[in-house]
């Protein structure tokens, strides 16, 4: 393995541990930026840098739809390990990207709290609520990547049916 640069690999768990810790760190911070603001900033930078690297050797993408297709196939494949399964658009600047096995949240477990003596089992936390903190970073990465390619947008994610995650990209009206 040549030191540095392209082609270097590391274990997937390195990234898992790091992103988990990031979420945990900013969840427990009482001072400084909010968890949302901090993870947004971290993710957006990563998205921009990755998009720049991955798109370096290809002709520029001009149409929004082209950019979205590149994002779903190439970018998603690199960052989230497989392409997006389904891309839908209303042709008015809204795109829904469905990943049926979103890799970063694949191991998120809906663990129940143990039952207390004589108490009914507490209801499990809804998946969407559980996933919310862990989706800030991926959303920000996607937003950063798109903005690097000239598309300013807002990205939200819905994890109601984990491991499927739907990302909704709404382009800022030009």
């Amino acid at each position: 393995m040549p030191p540095g640069g392209k082609g270097r690999e590391c274990s997937e768990s390195c990234l898992d541990f790091l992103t988990l810790q990031l979420v945990q760190h900013y969840r427990s911070q009482l001072q400084g930026p909010s968890q949302q603001a901090a993870l947004d900033a971290v993710g957006e930078r990563v998205g921009r840098q990755l998009a720049e690297r991955y798109s370096r050797d290809r002709p520029p993408l001009t149409e929004a739809l082209e950019v979205m297709k590149w994002l779903c196939k190439e970018f998603w494949g690199e960052v989230f390990r497989k392409g997006v399964d389904n891309l839908r658009t209303n042709h008015r600047g809204t795109f829904v990207l469905r990943d049926t096995q979103f890799r970063w949240l694949a191991r998120l477990s809906q663990n129940q709290m143990p039952a207390q003596m004589g108490q009914p089992l507490p209801a499990p936390i809804p998946k969407n609520e559980l996933a919310a903190d862990y989706l800030i970073l991926p959303c920000a990465i996607v937003r950063g990547a798109l903005s690097q390619l000239g598309l300013e947008c807002n990205v939200t994610a819905d994890a109601t049916s984990l491991p499927q995650v739907d990302f909704t990209v709404v382009l800022a009206s030009a």
């Binding site: 590391c10 274990s11 768990s13 390195c14 900033a41 993710g43 930078r45 990563v46 690297r53 960052v79």
Partner: peptide, 15 residues
């Protein structure tokens, strides 16, 4: 071990 391109990890750490 499953591996990934270290670039993503490195850039996330840097950020």
């Amino acid at each position: 071990m499953e591996t990934i391109s270290a670039e993503i990890f490195t850039l996330t750490y840097g950020s």
